[in-house]
């Protein structure tokens, strides 16, 4: 790995986010559709959840649960709001659901425009400074679906919009975090990360700054503190909760983070920390530290400029196709009656 990454012309490649939908989500969507929405096709704000990778063998997913959908009117709003707050295993990510009434309209969705629209939101939130206050918006996602309630079957497709850097970022160096710090720094970094992850105020904040003082003391700070961290001789890393487990690639959330770093802070050389865990605690062997070169995108001067975006999810065979799940076996009353008999 060292040989490969020491070459300065290596393109920085990101492992795509992967989706997972709990069947509780489809059940709630079905009842929402039947009881409340009717034929209304307006987009619905939803919340996905993710956490840093916590096992060297698998990536973490962006997961949708029953709670991802807005609460039914009047019910549970207060309880729900307080529950997901600060749950370290459920960092909320804002998303939007376009659920259509027919398969035809599902297929006719203009996916390119939708992705572009979401990317524009992200770009605007980066430039307005909102992303520094609420960093979760950097990982905004998009879900299109057709819920065939007669057959208990759900067609769906996720997109994780990523702003494309043009020219793309190149990698100077990428190593397990253990190899990039002194023992004292590593200990202080682990302690600081664990503290960040155990406080209910910060546990679900997926993007952060790591500042390492000359006395090896590490502090984790929110993005809005960027200006404060400047000019005092501290080493600064850009950290994010990395859902990916791979040893040679950072995960998807880094893409829009780099776009932010480039757009807001005009940096060309970026040190980043892909924060990963084991058994729920910081694991610097699994976490990566990388150094990337980014350059100001062409056309950046134009106020109308919005970077290109990619991000429609591929299936397990790497094909650009829609997914379908059938819950007939567990939802169809006729089948349930037969299996219960």
């Amino acid at each position: 790995m060292a040989e490969e990454s020491s070459s300065p012309s290596v393109l920085l490649q990101f492992a795509p986010f992967q989706s997972a939908v709990d069947d509780g989500f489809w059940r709630r969507l079905s009842s929402l559709k039947l009881d409340t929405l009717g034929i209304d096709q307006s987009p619905i704000p939803i919340t996905g959840f993710y956490a840093p990778c916590s096992n060297p063998q698998v990536s973490n997913y962006l997961t949708l649960l029953a709670e991802s959908l807005p609460p039914e009117a009047g019910k549970e709003a207060s309880v729900r709001g307080t529950l997901s707050l600060g749950n370290r295993n459920r960092c909320p990510v804002p998303g939007i659901l376009y659920n259509t009434n027919t398969l035809e309209s599902y297929r006719a969705i203009d996916k390119r425009s939708l992705l572009k629209a979401e990317a524009k939101k992200i770009w605007e939130e980066i430039n307005s400074g909102k992303a520094e206050e609420d960093s979760a918006v950097l990982s905004r996602f998009l879900l299109i679906s057709f819920a065939d309630l007669k057959k208990w079957s759900f067609h769906y497709w996720f997109a994780f919009p990523a702003l494309v850097l043009d020219p793309p970022a190149t990698l100077v160096n990428l190593q397990p975090a253990t190899q990039c710090f002194t023992l004292a720094e590593a200990e202080s970094l682990s302690a600081a990360c664990n503290k960040w992850r155990s406080s209910s105020l910060t546990a679900d904040v997926p993007f952060f700054l790591v500042s390492i003082a000359s006395d090896s003391n590490v502090a984790i700070r929110p993005l809005r503190d960027w200006a404060v961290c400047q000019g005092d001789g501290q080493k600064l890393l850009f950290g994010f909760y990395d859902p990916c487990n791979l040893p040679n690639n950072p995960g998807w959330p880094l893409r829009n983070f780099l776009a932010l770093i480039c757009a807001r802070w005009n940096m060309e050389k970026v040190c980043f920390l892909c924060y990963r865990e084991k058994h729920g605690f910081a694991d610097l062997g699994l976490s990566l530290v990388g150094e990337a070169l980014i350059s100001v995108p062409q056309g950046r001067k134009d106020p109308q400029y919005v970077p290109n975006a990619v991000g429609w999810e591929l299936n397990i065979e790497k094909k650009m196709v829609s997914r379908r799940i059938s819950l007939a076996q567990s939802m169809d009353p006729t089948r349930l009656a037969i299996s219960a008999a």
Binding site: Q13, F14, V164, A169, L246, V310
Partner: peptide
Amino acid sequence: DNLIETDAATLQSNY
């Protein structure tokens, strides 16, 4: 609409 995204920065390997 033959949705194809070409992006060199997307990891294509068997992730």
